[in-house]
Amino acid sequence: MGLQSCININKEWDIVGARQMGRDIAKKIGFGTVDQARIATAISELARNIYLYAETGQICFEVIDTINQKGISMIAVDSGPGIRDISQVMEDGYSTSGGLGAGLPGVKRLMDEFDIKSEEGKGTEVRSIKYVR
């Protein structure tokens, strides 16, 4: 595991900052244009959720660089209201704002690995990884 870079999400503008940071890291790791765009979109979804539902939080990136695999890992954390029914949220079509295909199920599809932990009243943590193909 490589170095961690983090960015705080407090205002809408920070979504752009997070995308930029993620894209720069992805480019350096060697992701192609399409995957860079997908990673940026996934970051948008996670950062916007923090901004909309938790108000503040953090997104951290880590470079994965082992003999077998290269990739990017990102963790979005907040101490907002949390998600009561994760299964429901992960169902296609539940997302309220993004239209078809967007939201957390969209992030899951864009990335290779996806995991979410959340506790009502405590906060939410979404971890996801994408590997260079």
Partner: peptide, 21 residues
């Protein structure tokens, strides 16, 4: 062309969900 590619990402996601549905 890169700009066009970016605007297609969400369409791609919508298409995938459409497939699943």
């Amino acid at each position: 062309m890169n700009f066009l590619l970016e605007t297609m990402i969400s369409y791609g996601m919508a298409h995938q969900e459409y497939q699943t549905l």
